[in-house]
Design a protein around this nucleic acid. Structure first.
Lengths: 250, 250
DNA sequence: GGGGAGAGATGCCGC
DNA sequence: GCGGCATTTCTCCCC
């Protein structure tokens, strides 16, 4: 594809809200929170309706370079080069894509107002434990989820049978040192703010690393193996989706 | 575009290493580490050479759904639907894309062996402080960077003029509660492993949140405002890139 | 492969 | 806007 043709196409697309897909041999320079340079190679460039710009190599999940939403971009035709100059004033970032060959430019007016429905998150775990704290320890009484404190929010707050406060921190993945530190921060904060000493900490996760376990026990906390809640069936997904649709009509 | 045509194209592409771009109206279901459902909408689907699959909506930096590298995929033609069934045995994940309209299928043999060169990371900050610890405190002597401990690795380890050990934790962004907890973990670990009490902690970052500062001072640690090192100029980038090229020839 | 931590993290929610 | 934090985090590095 001729660079002039690509330039003309992109110029026309600049002020639209179309999603643009470019395939090109290019270099990429970035300057902003850090600075980077990507030597020549063939990549896919995606410009979205919200003016997010992504550069994808032919492997890996992550874009190799990107500019966040509301980035200003314009094509510039140089000798034997077609440049995309991209700027984001609010993020104080800029990107320069220099294309020496353009394989394809295509554009689409995409219509999509949907949001993903995700189940099996840490929040779902906390809700499950709040509804049924016995799975953590017999006789627990749950009093709050997502309790806000200045030092972060506690997943589940309970009282045990001796009326000690119990702070529960949930992790949907293997609990690590960070999780133990987090639990400790909440426990200390609550001790201080409420002026009480008997505050227990329980870490709930499917697994825990050996070092984290050691540190946890050093602080007198405990671990309870809990898996994230069972996933919805496909049928339940569909019903939930339908319910959302019905709701949005109202 | 007819579903049959898209099916035929994708069937032919299945065993190639081409990068495939599909634009379609579709739903997406995912099941693996969690479970999700995405109601119908028009999206861009990217299948890479390494069999990574990405689904992008028309806004935002992140794919709304994805499957990691080496995923097996195949097109299946149903009545009025074209499905992409994707499976990854090693990650125990699966994804189902159901397309009811396909706007475009295109494919490219991309050639790209380049890696991005990035400057201005936290590691660069630690190296800068190691080379010149005076910017943190007069008279510091740096003895190690990236010192490994069982509870994590310390960015920079120093001695001050009174020969106290000083643990320095660097953050390239605004330091938060997590950063303070991390520093605390290292200081306590070193106190314990070396059996000494006088271990200081200094947090180096461009800024710090007020809560983090409060917690930091509670623990007797201190804060020093340090910016990440100056970025390379564009000319330096070019020279570095050239040097890499010369090197790769050898 | 497990463990630990950074990332140009991004995205979400709450104040 | 900042702040705190989860993420189908991803990615890298070290042991």
């Amino acid at each position: 594809m001729e660079l002039e043709e690509a330039y003309s196409l992109l110029s026309d697309l600049r002020k639209t809200h179309k999603t643009i897909i470019i395939v090109a041999d290019c270099t990429v320079e970035y300057k902003g929170r850090a600075e980077s340079y990507l030597p020549p190679g063939e990549r896919v460039i995606l410009i979205k309706r919200d003016r997010t710009v992504l550069v994808h190599q032919d492997s890996g999940s992550m874009p190799v370079n990107y500019m966040k939403e509301n980035s200003d971009w314009r094509p510039v035709l140089e000798k034997d080069k077609l440049e995309l100059r991209i700027n984001n004033i609010s993020y104080k970032e800029s990107m320069l894509i220099v294309m020496n060959k353009v394989f394809s430019v295509s554009s689409f007016s995409l219509s999509d107002g949907q949001k993903i429905q995700l189940v099996g998150t840490e929040r779902d775990m906390a809700d499950m434990i709040y509804a049924n704290p016995d799975i953590v320890e017999k006789g627990l009484r749950a009093v709050a989820t997502e309790e806000q404190t200045k030092y972060g929010f506690v997943d589940v707050l309970c009282y045990d049978r001796q009326n000690n406060l119990v702070v529960i921190e949930c992790k949907r993945y293997t609990a690590d040192l960070k999780a133990v530190s987090q639990l400790r921060r909440y426990v200390e904060r609550i001790k201080k703010s409420k002026g009480i000493e008997n505050v227990r900490g329980i870490l709930c996760a499917p697994k825990i690393t050996s070092n984290a376990k050691e540190m946890l026990f050093d602080f007198g906390f405990s671990f309870k193996a809990v898996k994230p809640p069972a996933y919805m069936s496909r049928e339940e997904h569909r019903q939930r989706s339908l319910a959302d649709f019905e709701h949005s009509k109202g």
